Amino acid sequence: MATADDFKLIRDIHSTGGRRQVFGSREQKPFEDLVDLGWLKRSSVDSRATHYQITERGTSAAL
């Protein structure tokens, strides 16, 4: 179930172009929650960072 923080984060991601790069596993937790909701997808993972991209469902949630 989505929380107020989830909606705040997806709106922030949407307003800044729909993509986010995250460093460190602790910082990934809120983004992984949005992946579980179907609002974000992991577009790539490298040794230092994970890249996320907003989905259509995420765009709808952000509006």
Rank of each mutant, 00 (worst) to 15 (best):
R42N: 04
A61I: 08
I10P: 00
E56R: 08
A62V: 05
D33L: 14
A2V: 06
F7V: 07
G17I: 03
L34S: 01
E27W: 09
W39Q: 01
K8P: 02
W39K: 00
G17Y: 04
D12I: 10
W39T: 00
E27N: 14
R48H: 14
V45M: 10
G58Q: 00
S15H: 11
K29Y: 05
M1N: 11
G38N: 04
H51M: 15
L34N: 01
E27I: 06
V35L: 05
G18P: 02
I13N: 00
Q53Y: 11
A2D: 03
F31E: 02
R57L: 15
E32V: 06
V45I: 11
F23W: 09
A61F: 05
G58Y: 00
A62W: 02
I54V: 04
E27R: 09
L63Q: 08
R11F: 10
G24W: 06
D6V: 05
T16D: 08
G58R: 00
V22F: 04
A62K: 00
S47A: 12
S25A: 12
D33P: 05
D46W: 02
D33K: 15
T50Y: 08
H51Q: 11
V22G: 04
F7G: 02
D46N: 11
Q28I: 09
L40T: 02
R48V: 14
R20F: 08
Q28M: 09
L37M: 07
T3S: 10
M1G: 12
A49F: 11
K41Y: 13
D12Y: 10
A4P: 13
T55P: 00
L63P: 01
G18M: 02
L9R: 05
A49P: 06
S47H: 10
G24R: 09
I10V: 06
I54N: 01
Y52C: 01
V45A: 09
R57S: 14
V45H: 09
V22Q: 03
T50M: 08
S44T: 11
R57F: 09
I13T: 01
S47V: 10
G17R: 05
A49Q: 09
V45S: 11
Q53D: 08
G58C: 01
S43L: 15
D33Y: 11
L37H: 05
S43N: 10
Q21G: 07
S15M: 13
T50H: 07
D6H: 12
Q28Y: 06
R11D: 03
K29F: 04
D46F: 04
I13R: 00
L63F: 06
A49C: 14
T59P: 01
S47M: 10
T3D: 05
S44L: 13
L37D: 01
L9Q: 03
K29A: 09
